[in-house]
Design a protein around this nucleic acid. Structure first.
Lengths: 351, 351
DNA sequence: TTGTACGCGTTATCAC
DNA sequence: GTGATAACGCGTACAA
């Protein structure tokens, strides 16, 4: 009832004293797994005392003893990238159910910083790691390979499947985009790819080539441009480069929504009508792209679920370290809005 | 050079042994404040040993001893609200500089959850709290009033200024919006206000009334509608209600960008041209509102800086608990885009 | 069934 | 200037 003054932390010792038992006994009574070891009546008395005093175990002290912190490191490139908040929220919510606390850091895709962050998390005794960083160059973030720490990968997977991972099916997602454009009648379709060092950039690039081939179209290499980052300015640069080649493209599959926005920039500059003269498909379905002018047709990914599943996999692994590393593949979904339409024929009439 | 196997944590004891000193001495040498107490040469030897072994102090153990966790609780309503990522990023970056770690939780504006979160953070021994939750009903989030824990308020302040706070000047921000519309020639200006229990909703409402009066216009009560949440659907509902009254409004000041988007919805439904027939100003300058149709005129807030300053104030307080609680007021900025224009005269011609 | 004693890694307070 | 020792809060062998 009457809670203790929140100012003074109440410790196990206090509870024990109030219950008239030894701190060791109190510890056993308070811990669910060891509660059977103690007399039911005594246990009740301890629990009551804890309740009355508003006792909360000190995770720091506990962690020191058990070398578990009930803490999970979350590495993301940048929280202000609209991609990540829903993922992180999924992680947070799922972890919270299990009484774990996420420690979130931004790596800005800087390998040194990533390394330092991992060091710091290890120092903080995290029980596991969720990493949404996605460089392809090395197998795992530096310093993680030899580590026995449970790790879940988000947005990428290892070739040997040695670690659990959650990814959206990018190959399929891009396939959806390509098929949509094909069904509208487009044939000269360009791809503005993201950086190939990132697994997402790479996969989408491959997926594009594959989808085109599957439709019996040999993709024109001139129509595939590769950018250095998944950002608006790269989309703009690539789009300009593409249009300068005057290759009669009628549609663009952008590496992500941001790059699609870069295309919008170019269209405005050059007075090109979208989707009248050219169609664009984005990727990710960032918040509010439905409000763009024109509303962006894009591929939706279940970001929240990606995060939640990743957290789930980590919890599984924490529960049973010997568990087989699951590889989760989530389904993308095409969202048709206003940036795609049938191509015009040469004379300016619908083909 | 040759780092230790990351699998085995290297402790202070290891460093001491390698340097041929006692752990206590090693501790003193490693800690900047106590380093003077130890022979320069010895200190160097310890530092070198630490470097060679890749020693990282264990914050858990340190925290147990110092009863500080180097951890800060961050309470926000919802990370997926585009308002918060930049704020959180500012907090993270500033805290990281000082080797503090933020613990971020989403309260969803639920008082019970908020209470539980604060409890959990206290259990985790956070050294301080940054709260971006903004209900006006009580002075501080429940359970915080009597707490001696350092707290910094974001997006709101206490009437007595008893706690440090960082807020943007909402009164001024709304003033900017109103003045902009007035200067375009609008007189019949409506305000779609956010919930008045939130300090931001309240302040903007007051700011609107004030700015209108300052221009010599007594605001028509019929033109001021109050919503129950800062969300799109409320903007839509209020806008419909407003237009149903047929009051010849020519401009709307929305409580935030989301509510402005709700207005866009209504305009599309009713076939109303914005900004031709009606102008709208948002608030916050969320990412990508410049890409909306029409690009949204809105009031920009320095979100990142808000977060960074809040973290800075907390660090100040941590350093010196007796410090005067600073009240930081940050400047908003009007961003004129395409959703505002001069009003039409009754005959459909520019007035 | 319960109490005792020790240790987790670190820092603070003593002596020396 | 440095070493020894205790203590932070908790969990857990071990003894009783």
């Amino acid at each position: 009832m009457a809670n203790a003054d929140p100012g003074d932390r109440v410790t196990l010792k206090d509870v024990a004293r109030r219950a008239g038992v030894h701190p060791g006994t109190a510890s056993r009574a308070l811990n669910a797994e060891t509660r059977e070891l103690v007399n039911g009546e005594t246990a009740e008395r301890v629990l009551a005392a804890a309740e009355e005093l508003g006792y909360r175990p000190n995770p720091i002290a506990r962690g020191l003893k058990t070398s578990r912190s009930y803490t999970v490191g979350v590495l993301i490139p940048d929280l202000t990238n609209p991609l990540f908040p829903p993922i992180v929220r999924g992680i947070q919510d799922r972890l919270e159910e299990a009484a774990y606390t996420p420690l979130i850091v931004n790596t800005d895709n800087d390998p040194d910083r990533e390394r330092a962050d991992i060091e710091a998390m290890r120092a903080r005794q995290v029980d596991g790691l969720i990493t949404a960083t996605a460089r392809r160059d090395q197998g795992l973030p530096a310093g993680l390979e030899r580590l026995s720490l449970p790790v879940v990968l988000v947005n990428r997977r290892l070739e040997d499947g040695a670690r659990p991972s959650v990814v959206a099916d990018d190959r399929k997602g891009i396939g959806l985009a390509v098929e949509h454009l094909l069904s509208l009648g487009h044939r000269r379709i360009a791809h503005l790819a993201g950086p190939q060092e990132l697994s997402t950039g790479h996969l989408r690039h491959d997926g594009f080539i594959e989808a085109m081939r599957a439709a019996g179209i040999d993709p024109d290499p001139e129509l595939v441009l590769v950018g250095t980052a998944f950002i608006e300015s790269e989309g703009e640069r690539l789009c300009n480069e593409l249009l300068d080649r005057e290759l009669e493209v009628t549609a663009i599959v952008a590496g992500n929504d941001l790059m699609a926005v870069g295309c919008y920039d170019v269209f405005v500059e050059r007075g090109i009508d979208c989707p009248g003269e050219i169609s664009v498909v984005g990727y990710n379905d960032m918040p509010f792209v439905g409000w763009f002018s024109p509303p962006l047709t894009t591929v939706h990914l279940p970001h929240y679920e990606i995060g939640a599943r990743a957290a789930g996999l980590l919890l599984d692994q924490l529960r049973d370290p010997e568990i087989e590393p699951a590889q989760v593949l989530l389904e993308p979904e095409l969202v048709v809005r206003g940036s795609t339409a049938a191509p015009l024929a040469r004379d300016g009439q619908p083909a």
